[in-house]
Nucleic acid binder design. Structure first.
Lengths: 233, 233
DNA sequence: GTCTATACTACGATAGAC
DNA sequence: GTCTATCGTAGTATAGAC
C-alpha cells in the first residue's frame, strides 16, 4: 500500500511513466497478435514495435503468454460491461434482446483488435487461464439463452425455435465481425448493429399476423439432396 | 502417363499405398492444426501422429505450408459443391436461400475439422495462396448477397434489410459453428440447419400480416446508452 | 528501465545411406 | 519410402552491467 517514489501525489490520476510504457507494450502486442496470430508473433516483433530490445520486455512480463492473457482479459472486460447494463433496461424480453445485440456488436467493433486476438488465440492460453476464459464466455451464452426463454414465457418470442440453438446462432453473427469488419466498410457500426438486431428480432418475434410456421418459409421441394454427415477426415 | 510398378491394373480404384499414406498425413495434419493451430504445430507433431520420422515427411511435401494449403483446399472444395447445387434448385429466392443455409451448415459440420483449420489459419498462407483463398471466399458471399437481392425483387424478402449486411450476418452464424460444435451436443446437424434457416428466413421473409417495421420490434426506450466507438488500443 | 551478452532449446529443411 | 545425421536459424528466457 506504500506510495512508490515516482508517485507525485495522492489524487494524481495520470499514470506513472512505467504504466504508460506497460500500456504501450500491450497495445502493440494486441495489434501484432491480431495481424499475424499469437504463435507466429515473436517477442522480438513486439520489442521492435515499441522500440526497445527484446530482453527489456521481461522487465514488464514474465513470459510471452502474459502478453496474450493481458490482451484477452481487456477484450473480455469490454463485454462484461454490457451484461451489467442489460439488467438495468426497462422493457420486455424483445427490448432487452435488442439492447444485448446492439451493445454486443458495438462493443465488439469498438474493441475489434483485442476481440480478434481473443477469438483467434485464446486456445493458446495454458490450463488455468484457458479454463477461466472459457467459463466466462459460457456465462455470456447462458444469459442470452435465458433472455430468449423469458421472451417465450412472456409470449413475445416464438416457441418454434430452440433458445440454445438461437443463442449460438446470434453469437456467431455478432462475433464473426472480427473476420470482416474494417472502418472503411460501407456501413457504420450503428447501422450494422441495427440491421443485425432487425434480422434477429424479425426472426424471433411472435407475430399474430404471420400465417405460416417458420419451418414452412421457403420449404424445400421433396427430394432435394442435402450434404450427408460425417467428416471424411 | 506410364503406369508405376506398384499399380496392379488399369481399372483398379484402390489408391496406391503411397496415396494412402499421403491421405493419412494430411488428415493427421488437419486434426493437429485444428487442435493447436498451424503455427503452434511442428512437423514433428505430424510425423509422430503417423508414426514416421520428421525428415521422412519431406518425401511427401516440400514445406510445412504445403500441409496447411492441402487441408484448406479440401475444406474449400466441400463448400463449392453447394454453390453448384444451388443453381439446380427450383423455386423462389426463399427456397433457394433455405437450401443455401441448410447445405452450408451441414457441409461445415461434415467437414468440421478442416473448416476449423480454414477459418483459424488461412491467414498463415503466403502471398498467392492466401489471395486465392480469399477470392474464393468472397465469391460465396457475393452469391448469397445476390440471392437476397433477388428475393427483394421478387417481393418475398423485406427491403428493410441491406443484403450486404444480411449476408455477412448469415455467414457469421453459419461459419461460427466450428467454434462450438461437437457431435456430443444436444442437437443433430439437421436440427441445427433447420433452426438456423427458420431464424434467418423468419427475419427476412416479407409477411403481409406483420404490423410493424422490423426496426420497431423491441424498440429501445429513449436515452439508453450504447457503447461508443473507437478501439482504445 | 534499458542495455549487452548469452544459455538453451526447438524448429524447418536437406543429404545421403539403406 | 523411411532412416540417420546434421546444418542453420530463430525462438524464449535469463544474468548482470549501466
Amino acid at each position: 500500500m506504500a506510495e512508490t517514489a515516482t508517485r507525485t501525489g495522492g489524487d494524481d490520476k495520470r499514470p506513472r511513466p512505467s504504466q504508460e510504457r506497460r500500456k504501450e507494450i500491450f497495445e502493440a502486442a494486441a495489434r501484432i497478435f491480431a495481424e499475424k496470430g499469437y504463435a507466429a508473433t515473436s517477442i522480438q516483433d513486439v520489442a521492435d514495435a515499441v522500440g526497445i530490445l527484446k530482453g527489456s520486455l521481461y522487465y514488464y512480463i514474465d513470459s510471452k503468454e502474459d502478453l496474450l492473457f493481458g490482451v484477452i482479459q481487456q477484450a473480455h472486460e469490454g463485454g462484461l460491461a454490457n451484461l451489467e447494463q442489460l439488467d438495468k433496461i426497462e422493457g420486455d424480453a424483445l427490448v432487452k434482446l435488442r439492447y444485448a445485440i446492439e451493445a454486443h456488436l458495438l462493443s465488439n467493433i469498438k474493441n475489434i483488435v483485442k476481440i480478434g486476438v481473443f477469438f483467434q488465440d485464446f486456445r493458446s492460453l495454458s490450463g488455468e487461464r484457458h479454463d477461466y476464459i472459457v467459463k466466462e464466455r459460457d456465462l455470456y451464452d447462458q444469459r442470452l439463452r435465458e433472455l430468449i426463454r423469458e421472451g417465450q414465457e412472456q409470449g413475445v418470442i416464438t416457441r418454434d425455435i430452440d433458445p440454445k440453438i438461437a443463442s449460438l446462432g446470434i453469437l456467431g453473427m455478432l462475433n464473426w465481425v472480427y473476420q470482416w469488419y474494417t472502418p472503411e466498410g460501407p456501413a457504420t457500426p450503428e447501422e450494422l448493429a441495427s440491421t443485425f438486431a432487425d434480422l434477429i428480432l424479425g426472426g424471433l418475434a411472435v407475430d399474430e399476423g404471420r400465417p405460416a410456421k417458420r419451418r414452412d418459409i421457403g420449404k424445400l421441394p421433396e427430394g432435394v439432396p442435402l450434404p450427408a454427415r460425417q467428416d471424411p477426415v
